[in-house]
Design a protein around this nucleic acid. Structure first.
Lengths: 148, 148
DNA sequence: ACCTAACTATTAGGCTACCTAAATATGAGC
DNA sequence: GCTCATATTTAGGTAGCCTAATAGTTAGGT
């Protein structure tokens, strides 16, 4: 097979991959049920679970700019799900830590979302689930490479 | 393996899958370069390529409500990339058709996006690409099942 | 023929989640 | 102690989605 053909095959795969990405957005949107934590908020809150995190760390982990993280944090704080406290080592920084209510909310939302996805995965054949399982680490790798 | 263990494995897979979905959103965001058609607009415009489509059809295909589709269509019309015309068979309906400029814009945006993705896929090993390839149809199936 | 119910699209108003630029405050190096 | 870098917040803006209300068109029943 020529280099040109390789290139074409790669572009074709890219096109299909792009479609899958787009569809993933819609799947994720459906997963956001009313009255529950949104995907974005859940992600922020999860970072605030163990020992707390700084605003900048949260933003970096989520792939958004700092002001976007601040916005979510403020909302979650108003909802009583996390607290902002001064960092003892660096008073420029703010440490964000989940409250007990926050922990409970993460627990509940996580469980519900997993159940919804699991219900879908349960309708797949074993080979299909295996295909998904095999692809997940590659998705992870792709994401990391895009982050930089 | 007990049914309980099966269930647990499924939940675990669901959790990983959810992470991958979330990451997909970020990958897709990075793919939206400045000054180019957005993902959403590109999708709308693609539907308007061959023979035109009705607003409702576009909305359904994109998994959004009709007013959201209208909004994108209006923007694209203002940009000169598509035209809205009365449907000859049903004057309630509106047919949306891409202009020559629209076609060119789709072409360009599609090529650029595919190139960006292909560049990432090129960094993967053959087995990793195969894993992606095998998973894509399953993603498609999952999406369809969520749509209903 | 007509009236009602169903359908198609738009308008109006509102929300979330992102962004950039500017302001504020603290820390660190010389 | 000045200056420069770092951490966060505030202010203002945009895209893209939503629901509810409106207007026009079609189709079905009597």
């Amino acid at each position: 097979m020529s280099a040109k053909q390789d290139e074409d095959a790669l572009i074709g795969l890219a096109q299909e991959f792009r479609d899958a990405l787009r569809q993933s957005v819609y799947v994720l949107r459906r997963l956001d049920a009313h009255g529950e934590l949104s995907s974005a908020q859940l992600s922020v809150l999860k970072m605030a679970l163990d020992g707390g995190a700084r605003v900048g760390e949260i933003a970096r982990d989520l792939g958004v700019k700092v002001p976007s993280a601040t916005e979510q944090i403020i909302r979650l704080e108003r909802a009583g799900l996390l607290r902002r406290e001064a960092d003892p080592n660096d008073s420029r920084a703010v440490r964000v830590a989940a409250t007990a209510e926050g922990r409970a909310a993460v627990d509940l939302a996580d469980r519900r979302r997993n159940e919804r996805i699991a219900a879908i995965l349960a309708t797949l054949g074993r080979d299909e689930r295996d295909a998904i399982r095999a692809a997940l680490p590659v998705f992870h790798k792709i994401n990391s490479s895009v982050r930089d």
